Amino acid sequence: MTWLKDVVGTEKAIIAMCHLLPLPGDPYFNKEKGMEYVVEMARKDLQALQEGGVDAVMFSNEFSMPYLTDVKTETVAAMARIIGELMSEINVPFGVNVLWDAQKSLDLAAATGAKFVREIFTGVYASDFGTWNTNVGETIRHQYRIGAENVKLLFNIVPEAAKYLADRDLESIAKSTVFNNRPDALCVSGLTAGAQTDKNLLRKVKNQATETVVFANTGVTMNNFEEQLSIADGAVVGTAFKYDGKFENHVDPKRVKEFMDKVKAFRNENCFDELNG
């Protein structure tokens, strides 16, 4: 049994993304509609995801584009307000992802009671956002300083729109990341949100991290979830749950229910127990 059973309620878990609209300080924030509109759209997507039967939800500032690697205070404050207003309506385990700032993600988790965070914790990258560095030792020390040591850490080892500066294969990255950092999970991604995770890369990572949870982090759909979940321990799903399967759209409750009904049938057929039904 992995920690997924205790924290999320099932093996082969589906963590659904609740993508927040642009926030104050973001270039595309809608000042006329304001934060009230952002909260209401988040509420609408959250309800659609939960009614469709997802196992967990992860809130992220997905539309704070272009992303920062040193996120501003106003972004974290806005995300905390949204989650705070929705707290009484959240009935599944939830996590947070402040793109792309690991310490701010932990700050938000500590403030809201999130069970997990997903971030880029390790490595140095050439990215669309410039040279992207990390400091995992300081980040983990920060986690303990703020009392967030029980928050599960999902390490994204294939960051979107970025490439390791060192010439390292994914297998060695997975192996050394597990040895040096003891992550709760490794996330394997495609190039961008919605891009399918390469099953061969996914398998290579799982072969190196046999005792660590591995997630297919992008591009899991109704057409490929069985293939992906036959390798991975779970999946993070965002785009596939949206109207017409488009990243920029809101969540389509019918797509969510159809997807989750099939996933639950797959789990039942393969004897993966669920605590939440």
Rank of each mutant, 00 (worst) to 15 (best):
S176A: 12
W132D: 01
D70T: 13
I173T: 03
S88F: 11
A174C: 09
T192C: 14
M58V: 15
F247Y: 13
E274G: 10
K163S: 14
N268V: 08
L170Y: 07
L20P: 02
A161K: 15
A16W: 00
A114E: 06
M1G: 10
L229S: 02
L191P: 06
R145M: 15
L108T: 04
V98C: 06
Y125D: 04
S60T: 14
R145A: 15
Q143I: 06
W100T: 10
I146L: 14
M222Y: 11
M1R: 07
D261T: 09
I157H: 01
E11A: 04
D6S: 13
F225L: 04
N268Y: 11
S64K: 00
F225M: 04
L153M: 05
F155Q: 00
D70I: 13
I90M: 08
K206W: 13
G238T: 01
A126M: 14
T134H: 12
G277W: 12
R168W: 15
V57Q: 05
A235I: 02
L86D: 02
A232W: 02
A209E: 09
Y28P: 09
V205L: 09
A126H: 13
Q228I: 11
D198M: 05
A174F: 11
T221V: 01
I14T: 06
A148G: 02
E258A: 07
P22G: 03
F94Y: 10
N135Q: 11
T192H: 15
D233P: 03
T221N: 04
A195L: 10
F155G: 00
S64L: 00
K31C: 14
F29M: 06
I82F: 14
V7R: 05
V158N: 06
G25A: 03
T134M: 11
G277C: 12
S88N: 12
V71Y: 01
P93Y: 01
F272I: 04
T134Q: 08
L202M: 01
F266D: 03
P22I: 06
E40A: 13
N156C: 07
V213G: 00
F225H: 01
